[in-house]
Simulated assay, not measured.
Amino acid sequence: MFHAPHGNQRAPLPTARESEPVPTTQQAHTQVVDAPAEKSAPKSACRDAYFDNAKYLAIVLVAVAHAWEPVMDGSRASRALYLLVYSFHMPAFILISGYFSRSYTGRPDQLRRLLTGIAVPYVVFEVVYSLFRRWAQDAPEQPISLLDPFYLTWFLAALFIWRLTAPLWRLIKWPVPVALTLASLATLTPDIGADLNLQRVLQFLPFFVLGLCLKPEHFQLVRRREARLLALPLFAGAGVFAYWASAHMNFGWLYRSSSAQELGVPWWAGIVMTLAFFGCALLLTAGFLAWVPRRRTWFTVLGAGTICGYLLHGLLIKAADYGRVFEDYAWLSDPGGEIMLTLIAAAAVTLLCTPPVRRSLRWVTEPDMRWAFRRDATELGRLRR
């Protein structure tokens, strides 16, 4: 390092403190389901209560919707509520994931966190879910495939792909329109196949890309009092529309895992539904974020354990499914039974997000695998200094 005006005078080396990266809120929230924070950073200084609150509330909605799915068919009101919640809970989760992926550039330390925080949990829980299905259904011939995500694990596979492509989206001049084009084209392509659930990866992609494009001031807009007030008529109108649509719409559109042809509609319907669902999900996500508490609450700490709540609550849902609980207890489809299922699902996922559960699963959700990686030159130079 040289200062040109003074010839070959060597610039002073930075001190060790100056050379260390300063932990930021964005680094601490590198993945929404939830990356390990930097070891040296105090957690209270690294995390934003608002986003932890949003992640916890979103994961509760995910668990509750999964609990409703097996019992909702007998009630139009239940189907409408399911349609309303399913329209925005995963888009909200994915959008926040994209927002906290803005700093991803593919640095060695980021790639290590990507592998340990997303790839390793994906592999482990894909195997766990597959073995659980084999045991519960007494079907040892069922294959275990890491290329065909089972049940909830698709999100980890998708997040891995989206995160890897984040630097590319920052190079594109119109990233959101391009992502919407890819999502629309996916709905016209029934031959994509089940590998890594690429149909869902592409159809949910616009929400991740939009998150990459957002700035803190955009979230300040939805946190204003006016936004909270506007969210009330928004959800009221969406609820009325969902009640009407629940009797007419194919819910396959919600899952983004099928093409238009596979859903039995003309090809152009895929483009229309892609744009319509993107707009609806965006409005409802803004309304949801408007009502997320900004201050620390009793559940703020649970936002750091959403990966545990997400991955483990699926085992409870599948256990009830394999045990024919929803079929043998028909009263669960009654209003009282659905309310009870809602409370149980919310309580269970809350428990699964608690710090003791997170600590007990850290070996798989936040593994320390330094033994598996080479140290890059930057890290070695910092250690020498």
Score class of each variant (00 low, 15 high):
Ala372Pro: 01
Phe219Pro: 01
Pro21Cys: 00
Ile161Arg: 08
Tyr151Pro: 05
Gln220Gly: 13
Val240Met: 08
Ser246Ala: 15
Ala347Lys: 07
Val292Cys: 03
Asp368Thr: 05
Ala58Cys: 10
Thr189His: 11
Arg79Ile: 06
Trp135Ala: 14
Phe277Tyr: 09
Gly264Glu: 03
Gly106Asp: 02
Pro140His: 10
Leu57Arg: 03
Pro266Ser: 00
Ser101Tyr: 13
Glu38Val: 11
Phe326Thr: 04
Ala377Met: 07
Ser103Val: 15
Pro206Tyr: 00
Val85Lys: 00
Leu229Trp: 15
Ala11Phe: 06
Asp109Gly: 06
Leu152Ala: 15
Leu198Arg: 08
Arg256Gln: 11
Ala28Tyr: 13
Gln110Phe: 01
Glu126Gln: 15
Phe132Thr: 10
Leu352Gly: 06
Tyr50Ala: 01
Ala92Val: 12
Asp73Ala: 12
Ala320Val: 11
Phe373Gln: 02
Phe208Gly: 10
Leu81Asp: 08
Ala65Trp: 04
Glu226Thr: 15
Ser103Ala: 15
Glu262Lys: 01
Gly117Lys: 05
Arg375Pro: 02
Ile344Pro: 05
Ala304Trp: 05
Pro216Leu: 08
Leu114Met: 10
Trp331Pro: 09
His218Tyr: 12
Trp291Asn: 07
Thr354Met: 13
Val265His: 03
Leu316Thr: 10
Phe150Arg: 11
Leu383Glu: 12
Gln137Phe: 15
Gly252Asp: 07
Val176Arg: 01
Gln9Glu: 10
Phe93Gln: 14
Arg134Val: 12
Leu332Phe: 04
Ala77Gly: 15
Asp368Tyr: 07
Pro149His: 11
Val127Met: 09
Thr365Asp: 06
Ala41Phe: 03
Leu202Met: 13
Trp135Val: 14
Leu315Ile: 14
Gln137Val: 14
Pro233Trp: 04
Asp376Gly: 00
Leu221Met: 15
Ala247Val: 02
Leu83Thr: 13
Gly314Tyr: 04
Leu180His: 03
Leu254Lys: 06
Trp154Tyr: 13
Leu263Val: 01
Asp195Trp: 12
Gly314Cys: 02
Ala372Glu: 03
Val62Glu: 04
Leu131Thr: 14
Arg223Met: 07
Leu210Arg: 11
Leu114Val: 04
Ile96Tyr: 07
Leu114Gly: 02
Ser246Arg: 08
Met273Ala: 12
Leu131Ile: 14
Arg256Leu: 13
Gln199His: 14
Val33Asp: 13
Gln27Met: 14
Pro335Ala: 04
Gln110Leu: 04
Val209His: 03
Met369His: 05
Val127His: 10
Arg79Ala: 08
Ala231Phe: 08
Phe100Ile: 07
Pro143Ile: 02
Arg225Asn: 10
Leu83Val: 04
Ala319Cys: 11
Leu289Trp: 10
Tyr322Thr: 07
Ala4Thr: 12
Tyr86Glu: 15
Pro143Asn: 02
Pro149Leu: 08
Gln26Phe: 10
Arg163Glu: 03
Leu284Met: 10
Val325Cys: 09
Ala92His: 09
Phe208Met: 07
Ser103Phe: 09
Ala231Asp: 02
Thr24Glu: 06
Val128Gly: 09
Gly323Leu: 05
His6Ala: 09
Asp73Arg: 11
Leu316Cys: 13
Trp298Gln: 13
